[in-house]
Design a protein around this nucleic acid. Structure first.
Length: 685
DNA sequence: AGCACGCCGACT
DNA sequence: GTCGGCGTGCTC
């Protein structure tokens, strides 16, 4: 017998190994094999009679037995094939390794009276129990109490304390929800899909109660013994979803996302695989979590670009993986959106996906939306007036700005723009570091000089989250202002909780605050710079603009108070802005489709992005373009890209029909290491 | 990914 | 004359 073993090595097909007599090996097993001078663990992706490798085979050294279900191996194989990434590398990046959970917090496992009896003769343990009773649950803090180190261990061993594993500290008051008839009809329709692999687009404005529908669909699946998987585009949306899922499902779901501790990630993955965990909430990587019997996969805000992994191999779109899995595992896929991607909406129009509409808001009322000129100020007079008015009425305010930092650009008086010497992109000034930062490579420069003339003083311009926060504090010194962006991600949980309790009155945020957050206290949303959303030279700029404005606007007026939205823009007639402020997706979709058709962009074609990295990138890209052209491919480019960390880059686009990826795979069986192939790119820059 | 082999600059 | 820079190439 020969085992085909995927090893965690870039750019290599699986390796053939001899299965020694007496050892039994199957697809999905984890095995240890000799590899050159070293030993590696790999995953068996095939067991065959005849090897493909012509040379001598070495034997497998050891096996740790079944590790992945064959269905997961096959999904990841498919993902790796579609993204031109070696299977072994894809497996290594997508599958967590066994890891122990470190106890970070504890809770009382027995009634308090019983505990105090047990600890009467152990003063250190009694001190720990007293501290726990007073709310100190962090193991780190408890160990600092004299004798705490051993006492905590003893109490855990005796079962008086138990590990407390709550992934988020976010809390909110639970609200009982009754479904509207449209919501009930949607859940009813999805019932058919569970077990049959059908796809649904749940389309409704913000506040139409989409989350409740996913959760009820999951409950339907659970009732039939089938697991549920709920995906959101951003980690910041997980605390709220996790809390609500716990309420509807009766017990909290397991979280799964990239920045989770290895032990906790393994616990969720492995628990799901073993059938102990029946519901997982997570971000895009959670789409791979193995369940023996999956009933429902829901993707909230399906049009969000965060569902596409593009910065690192393997390149995949969680929506595509969800659909692939659903087809094979008979799960229902529910794509939810207020502003679907035009690709998905056009598939629903063609009947490939069943369209389920939620016509109106169930929480709050339609907000009043106004476009005001942007002018030179960060927070213009109209927005300033509105913020003051809402503060006076004890409403909460969300200010949305899609750039990080304080000033987003610096110009020298010789007209040169200050750029990263390695990446060539404009440097952003961050007040928190009192320095300039390159958002591509992260490099920080304290006092850079103009490369042109040596000047060290610059004219600073552009608006980022820090500057909006600063302006809000300056204009409203008595309000509590907080900022939630990637730079403040460490405090995300705390900030969200304080916002939920109303302690924070003005929240300034990028990206992550603009989507599914549901805080009934928000009465005003200000979109500080709608025009900047359009500035990306990308065919999806219109769609992004629509999504961001509609999404941010949808945060307003979800409670008792009427909502108000103010969009600062100097291009109020641009179709994406005009349609978004009216919440008119149909009109936006119509215009967008006309534009996409005229320029033959998706969904009227399929694109594959190819990025060449390294010295001579442009020359190599030209060569690839000519080669592909002579094979009959339609090639756009090559175009020079900004270098990354000083390494030159160039890209080209291949345009074709649905089969373009398969045709490319045939033409390029093994792309060289300097060529990255990314089908269906989300960003073209 | 590692780790080899393999050809051109600054040093004992 | 060596030590060592990291450019291609291989690992079943």
């Amino acid at each position: 017998m020969i085992a085909r073993v995927a090893l965690p090595i870039p750019r290599a097909a699986p390796f053939d190994y001899e299965v020694p007599l007496g050892l039994s090996v199957a697809v999905g097993d984890r095995v240890r094999v000799p590899f050159g001078p070293r030993h590696l663990w790999g995953i068996v992706v095939g067991v065959v009679a005849e090897p493909t490798f012509p040379g001598r085979l070495l034997p497998i050294e050891a096996t740790s037995g079944p590790f992945l279900p064959p269905s997961t191996v096959s999904i990841i194989e498919e993902v790796s094939r579609r993204s031109f990434v070696p299977v072994g590398l894809a497996l290594a990046r997508l599958v967590p390794l066994p890891s122990r959970v470190r106890v970070r917090a504890v809770e009382l496992a027995v009634p308090a009276e019983a505990a105090s009896d047990l600890a009467r003769r152990a003063p250190a343990q009694a001190r720990i129990l007293a501290a726990v009773a007073e709310g100190t649950t962090e193991v780190g803090a408890l160990r600092r109490i004299p004798g705490g180190d051993r006492a905590v261990a003893a109490l855990l061993r005796k079962g008086i304390l138990r590990p407390r594993r709550l992934p988020f500290s976010y809390r909110e008051e639970s609200r009982a929800v009754a479904l509207t008839s449209a919501q009930r009809a949607a859940v009813e329709a999805m019932r058919v899909g569970i077990g049959s692999g059908r796809k649904y687009l749940l389309f409704g404005p913000p506040g139409a109660g989409k989350t409740e529908v996913y959760l009820r669909a999951v409950v339907e699946g659970l009732a039939r013994g089938k697991a549920g998987l709920l995906l959101v585009p951003e980690v910041s949306l997980l605390p709220q979803l996790w809390t609500r899922a716990g309420r509807v499902l009766g017990s909290p779901p397991a979280p799964y996302f990239g920045e989770l501790r290895p032990g906790e990630r393994w616990e969720s993955w492995h628990g799901a695989q073993e059938g102990r965990i029946h519901c997982v909430v997570g971000t895009r990587s959670a789409v791979f979590v193995p369940f023996p019997d999956l009933g429902v996969i829901a993707l909230d805000e399906e049009g969000e670009p965060a569902y596409k992994q593009e910065e690192m191999a393997p390149y995949y779109h969680a929506r595509a993986v969800a659909e692939l899995r659903a087809g094979r595992e008979g799960a229902a896929v529910v794509l939810g959106a207020a502003a679907p991607s035009v690709e998905t909406y056009s598939r629903a129009e063609r009947g490939e996906i069943e369209l389920l509409r939620l016509p109106q808001r169930v929480v709050g009322a339609e907000p009043a939306v106004r476009i005001v000129p942007r002018g030179d100020e960060v927070i213009g007079p109209a927005l300033e007036e509105a913020v003051g008015r809402h503060l006076a009425r004890r409403g909460q305010i969300l200010l949305f700005i899609n750039r990080l930092g304080f000033y987003t650009g610096a110009a020298c008086r010789c007209r040169a723009i200050l750029r990263c010497p390695d990446c060539e992109i404009p440097l952003v000034f961050h007040l928190s570091e009192r320095a300039f930062r390159c958002h591509a490579c992260g490099r920080v420069q304290r006092d850079p000089a103009c490369p042109n003339c040596g000047e060290t003083r610059f004219h600073l311009f552009g608006v980022g989250t820090e500057r909006v926060e600063h302006e809000a504090k300056r204009l409203f010194p008595r309000a509590t202002v907080a900022r939630l962006d990637a730079d403040a991600a460490r405090d995300r949980d705390r900030i969200l909780s304080s916002f939920a309790t109303g302690e924070i009155q003005i929240l300034v945020g990028a990206q992550m605050v603009g989507k599914g957050l549901d805080f009934p206290g928000i009465s005003l949303v200000g979109i500080v710079n709608a025009d900047q959303l359009l500035s990306t030279p990308d065919f999806r700029a219109g769609e992004r603009t629509y999504q961001l404005i509609a999404g941010a606007a949808g945060r307003a007026g979800r409670g008792e108070r009427p909502g108000e939205v103010i969009v600062q823009s100097d291009q109020p007639d641009y179709y994406a802005i005009r349609c978004a402020v009216r919440g008119d997706y149909a009109a936006f979709y119509g215009e967008e489709m006309r534009y996409r058709e005229a320029l033959r962009y998706p969904p009227f074609s399929r694109l594959v992005r190819m990025v060449v990295t390294g010295s001579g990138a442009e020359g190599k890209a030209g060569q690839v373009a000519r080669d592909l052209g002579s094979h009959g491919f339609e090639v756009l480019g090559p175009a020079r890209l900004f270098p990354r960390r000083g390494i030159p880059r160039a890209q080209l686009l291949v345009r074709g029909k649905d089969d373009v990826v398969e045709l490319l795979a045939a033409a390029l069986p093994q792309p060289p290491s300097w060529l990255r192939v990314d089908p269906d790119p989300i960003w073209l820059g």
